[in-house]
Design a protein around this nucleic acid. Structure first.
Length: 288
DNA sequence: TTGCAGGGGTCAA
DNA sequence: TTGACCCCTGCA
């Protein structure tokens, strides 16, 4: 199996894959992560400041993984720019190896529609079922994995097909958006070239796409880094530290403060707040 | 074992 | 602005 090595001090597999941006990367017992992106399956291993990419030729790396892993961006500069106070310095120091993956548009749209009012393990389960039922097989060594299905393939399904995968009430949204994408009504290149506000207005017209899902798709698939997707965790951290009192106030304040770096700041904050909350909860209760 | 609340939201009233 | 929503999980 071909292996490519990447050296980058601002890249940590755990930070990048556990910060909540993606749903198709899974950690193995040895700490490596495997997953499928585009039509390729790889396994990644951390080796100090290097990452080993297994099942990846030099050509695959240059044509795909370099872009997917956002390796041409200087995260040192970003981290410095968002470290505006004590809180942000903590968040950046906690998740300093996060990179925002450049994910495929249709996959991101479908995945985030599934994510609404849902938990991460369940989202991953439904997405995985969708891929193994309708995606093309991709080999990772001798293991079979499945690529994310095309819009054309998913457009041929009806609502009950989505429901039987566990998508629940999101079934009609998924069927609708698959048809729109298959008809070519959602061209990622065109949307990506639009100013953020215009691209946002277009995506918001889709049934099943509200503020949060829309911002995540624009950030994670179309590189609109000036957005600050605001969910319950971000609302919490913003109200604790920036005294905002609503989801919309948190989003506006985040975008005002962080500007072109809003999306990065959001990821550092989200990962830091969520992981520290987990740690708090797992602490044994003090006996009285 | 059973019941209930709530989860990285969105829609419709 | 508020409640319902499919499914799964954690907890009492």
């Amino acid at each position: 199996m071909e292996v490519t090595r990447v050296s980058n001090k601002d890249f940590d597999l755990t930070h990048t894959f556990e910060c909540g941006q993606c749903f198709r990367w899974n950690r193995a017992d040895d700490g490596s992560y495997s997953g499928v992106a585009g039509s390729k399956a790889v396994r990644l291993r951390q080796d100090g400041d290097s990452i080993l990419i297994e099942n990846c030729s030099a050509e695959d790396f240059d044509s795909f993984w370099r872009g997917y892993l956002d390796l041409d961006r200087d995260y040192g500069e970003i981290k410095q720019a968002v470290s505006i106070n004590e809180l942000m310095r903590n968040a950046v120091s906690f998740g300093g190896g996060i990179r925002i993956l450049r994910q495929e548009f249709f996959e991101t749209l479908i995945s985030y529609i599934i994510s609404q009012n849902n938990s991460i393990p369940n989202i991953k389960r439904v997405v995985e079922r969708l891929c193994s039922a309708y995606g093309e097989p991709v080999m990772l060594g001798d293991e079979v994995r499945y690529a994310f299905p095309s819009a054309q393939r998913l457009a041929s399904l009806n609502e009950s097909d989505f429901r039987s995968l566990g998508a629940g009430f999101r079934d009609r949204y998924l069927a609708g958006v698959s048809r729109l994408a298959a008809e070519g009504a959602l061209d990622p290149d065109r949307l990506s070239a639009l100013p953020t506000a215009e691209a946002r207005a277009e995506l918001m017209k889709i049934k099943g796409v509200g503020n949060k899902v829309c911002d995540c798709v624009l950030l994670f698939a179309l590189g609109k880094f000036d957005l600050f997707p605001t969910d319950t965790w971000i609302k919490k951290v913003m109200s604790e530290s920036f005294s905002t009192d609503s989801v919309s106030a948190a989003k506006n304040e985040g975008e005002r403060i962080f500007g072109q770096y809003s999306g990065f700041a959001q990821q550092y904050l989200f990962y830091w707040r969520r992981e520290t909350d987990k740690t708090e909860r797992s602490k044994p209760l003090k006996s009285l």
